[in-house]
C-alpha cells in the first residue's frame, strides 16, 4: 500500500510531514470492527456463544414449562407442539431443562474461570515482577497443582466437602489457576524484557505501577483469548463432573446430569442424550471459535502495520 515516499525531496531538518503514516481517528476502531465482521470463525463462534448466553438469560425470566415440574403422566413424551423436544423420564420439559442447564453451565464457567483468571493472573504477574525465589515458589506450586489430575482433585473435594455445584466450581477453578499462571508469567516476562519497561524504570516507576500500567494492558488480549478457551473447557468439565454425579445435584438441571439421566434410557429414547450433547457441543464449539477469532483479531502483526 505505502508506496515509495519522496524522502529526498524534503529538507533534512524539517520535521517529517504528516503524510508519512496515514493517521486514523482514534485507535483504528473501525478497522477492527470490519475485520471482526469478516472473520468467519469469530462470527460463527460469537453467534453460537450468544445463543448459549441468551438461552441462559432467557431461562431466568421464561421457560416453556417450569423446569422443576415433575409430570409422570407425560414422561418420555416424543417431541410435540406442547413439549417441543419431548419430556424426560420424570416428565420434565426438555427445552426448559436445556435453558436452565445453560444457566448452570455458564454460572459454573464464569465463576470457575473467574477464580482461575484472578488468582492465576495475579500470581503470574507477581512471579514475573519479583523473579528470584518468589517466582520459583509460585511456579513450582503451580506445577504441583497442574500435575494433579483435575478429576481426582474434584473427587477428593467432593469427598471432603460433599458433591455439589460449589464443589465443582472450586475444583474447576483451582484447576484453571496454573494454566492462567503459566500463560501470564510467560507473556509478562516477555513484556518485562521490552525497552518501554526500562523507560518506565528510568522515569522512576516501581514494579507495581509498571505491572499495572504497562504489563497488564499488554497481555490483556492474551488473557482474554485464554479465558474464552478455558470457559469452554470449564463447561465441558462441569458437564463431566455432573455426569459422574460429582457436580450439580438434582433437582437442579444441568447438561451433564441430563446426559447421566439419559444414559439408562439410551435404547428407549436415544434423543434424550442427543439434546444435552448438542447443547454442550454448541457451547464448547462456539467458545473455541470465538477464542480463535479473538486471537486473530488481537494479533499485533495483523492489527498494527509497522
Amino acid at each position: 500500500m505505502n508506496g515509495v515516499q519522496p524522502t529526498a525531496a524534503m529538507p533534512f531538518d524539517a520535521p517529517p510531514p504528516e503524510a508519512a503514516v496515514p493517521s486514523k481517528p482514534g485507535r483504528s476502531g473501525r478497522g477492527v470492527l470490519q475485520r471482526a465482521l469478516r472473520h468467519r470463525s469469530f462470527m460463527i463462534g460469537g453467534v453460537l456463544t450468544l445463543l448459549v448466553i441468551s438461552a441462559a438469560l432467557l431461562s431466568t425470566i421464561w421457560t416453556p414449562w417450569p423446569a422443576y415440574e415433575i409430570d409422570l403422566a407425560h414422561k418420555l413424551n416424543p417431541p410435540s407442539a406442547m413439549h417441543w423436544l419431548g419430556t424426560d423420564v420424570l416428565g420434565r420439559d426438555i427445552v426448559s431443562l436445556l435453558l436452565v442447564g445453560a444457566r448452570t453451565s455458564i454460572l459454573v464457567g464464569v465463576i470457575a474461570v473467574g477464580i482461575g483468571l484472578l488468582a492465576g493472573a495475579s500470581l503470574g504477574l507477581i512471579a514475573a515482577a519479583r523473579k528470584g525465589w518468589i517466582e520459583e515458589l509460585i511456579m513450582r506450586l503451580g506445577d504441583f497443582t497442574f500435575a494433579f489430575p483435575a478429576l481426582l482433585s474434584a473427587i477428593m473435594l467432593a469427598a471432603v466437602a460433599g458433591a455439589g455445584m460449589v464443589t465443582s466450581i472450586a475444583a474447576i477453578g483451582i484447576f484453571q489457576i496454573p494454566i492462567f499462571l503459566r500463560i501470564t508469567r510467560g507473556s509478562a516476562n516477555a513484556i518485562w524484557a521490552r525497552e518501554f519497561v526500562l523507560a518506565a524504570r528510568v522515569a522512576g516507576k516501581g514494579k507495581f505501577r509498571i505491572t499495572i500500567e504497562h504489563v497488564l494492558p499488554n497481555i490483556l488480549s492474551i488473557l482474554i483469548v485464554q479465558a474464552t478457551i478455558q470457559f469452554a473447557l470449564a463447561i465441558l468439565a462441569e458437564a463431566a463432573l455432573s455426569y459422574l454425579g460429582l457436580g450439580t445435584q438434582p433437582p437442579q438441571p444441568s447438561w451433564g446430569r441430563m446426559l447421566n439421566d439419559a444414559q439408562s434410557l439410551l435404547f428407549q429414547s436415544p434423543l434424550l442424550a442427543v439434546y444435552p450433547g448438542l447443547a454442550i457441543a454448541t457451547a464448547v464449539l462456539g467458545l473455541n471459535l470465538l477464542g480463535d477469532g479473538l486471537r486473530d483479531l488481537f494479533d499485533p502483526r495483523l492489527s498494527r502495520e509497522r
Binding site: F196, V202, K205
Partner: peptide, 29 residues
C-alpha cells in the same frame, strides 16, 4: 537524568497514547 533508548519501536508502549508516554516521568511522581 533521563535516557533515550536504541529501538524507537520497543521503547514506546504500544498501548499508550503519546500524551501518556511522554508524561511518564511526570506521572511517576
Amino acid at each position: 537524568f533521563q535516557m533515550v533508548f536504541q529501538d524507537p519501536y520497543g521503547s514506546l508502549d504500544p498501548r499508550q497514547t503519546v500524551a501518556r508516554i511522554v508524561a511518564e516521568p511526570l506521572t511517576a511522581f
